[in-house]
Nucleic acid binder design. Structure first.
Lengths: 188, 188
DNA sequence: ATGGATACAATACAATCGTATTGCTTGCCG
DNA sequence: CGGCAAGCAATACGATTGTATTGTATCCAT
């Protein structure tokens, strides 16, 4: 009986069905199958509840990444394409992330959480990129690739392009940047 | 006395100060300096109000772009970097855009609006890119550049990186893609 | 066993929500 | 001049909101 987790998952489900504006303590309680009182027991306010759910999501995907134990080359690929949803289930994560982003304009504490998560992701990518890109370009390339993936992900969730298309674009870009870095040695 | 416009701007101001979840008919009316009744007079429901404000924003930036009348080379630069806020005022536009994106999960009609706007932007960039990129890569490069800019913009609004840094990254990427397309003729 | 913490539910409350209704003013068309 | 449409404000409605309060179980340490 992981009520704490149920509540967090309730927040996510509510975001997905009613949008961030539709998240209320009652809606979350119902989605989680618990009472309003219990939600309050674990989270002192609605804002705190949302922040906790964001923190849980960030921690969850960091843990999944560590668990996977990627080889260096796979790590780069994973870090770039991971943000892009190729299945309905993965789509959810991106939708939820954008909900937090929108909510962060009215919650500086939440904004700080998201900031830290993204720059952590960028640093992680940069360390793996160091093997294949000159040192003075690493930060720059890492930032570009993460941004590209995020931008593509945003268009996938609106249904504008497919996840597969987005991944293909992202992988081509990854090769392109790596190619440039290796002195354009990959011309056909 | 442009009350219609006042109301739309009221929506935007409310999004910026209270987030998309804080947008209520009353809050918008107050921000616009009009009565609740007048907001209802022009917009049959809150959802319709939000959609109208999104449509106004999309139309507004399209009109501004047409008015500017860029030369082809400037157009590419503008279309890529425009989404990236370099001033507090420009930041607002990106924040508002993300608010709409978050709201679109619970409003399919709004989602369609955003979809159409983004793919229009991509098509416009593609036509200007045709002069400098091989035909079979145009769509792909346009998509990558727009996605890159959007991803960078998202990180600017969280305060993680500066607008200037983001623009620099975006311009470097633009050159890189153009460079690749020209057969890597730009090596140092 | 007993006492205090923790887990959980129920309910009460004022505030705010979206929307419907009504009415007053203004301007234009006949 | 009269009438009708549009612009605009006020208010009333029940529903929903966030949160405080209060209660009862359940537990583990003393």
């Amino acid at each position: 009986m992981d009520r704490r987790g149920d509540i967090i998952r309730g927040v996510w489900r509510t975001i997905l069905t009613r949008g961030i504006a539709g998240v209320s303590v009652r809606a979350v309680a119902e989605a989680a199958g618990v009472s309003v009182g219990l939600v309050q027991h674990y989270h002192r306010s609605k804002d705190a509840l949302i922040r906790a759910s964001a923190a849980a999501m960030i921690e969850g995907s960091a843990a999944a990444y560590r668990l996977a134990g990627f080889a260096p080359s796979e790590a780069v690929r994973h870090l770039v394409t991971h943000a892009i949803p190729t299945s309905p289930a993965a789509r959810d994560g991106v939708v939820i992330w954008h909900a937090y982003l929108a909510a962060s304009v009215a919650d500086e504490e939440l904004a700080a959480l998201l900031r830290a998560a993204k720059s952590g992701q960028e640093r992680e990518l940069a360390t793996h990129l160091a093997a294949v890109v000159p040192e003075d370009e690493v930060t720059h390339v890492a930032r570009s690739l993460i941004a590209l993936a995020d931008g593509l992900a945003a268009r996938v969730i609106t249904g504008e392009i497919s996840g597969a298309d987005a991944v293909q674009t992202a992988e081509a870009a990854t090769d392109a940047f790596a190619g440039i870095a290796r002195g354009r040695s990959q011309a056909p």
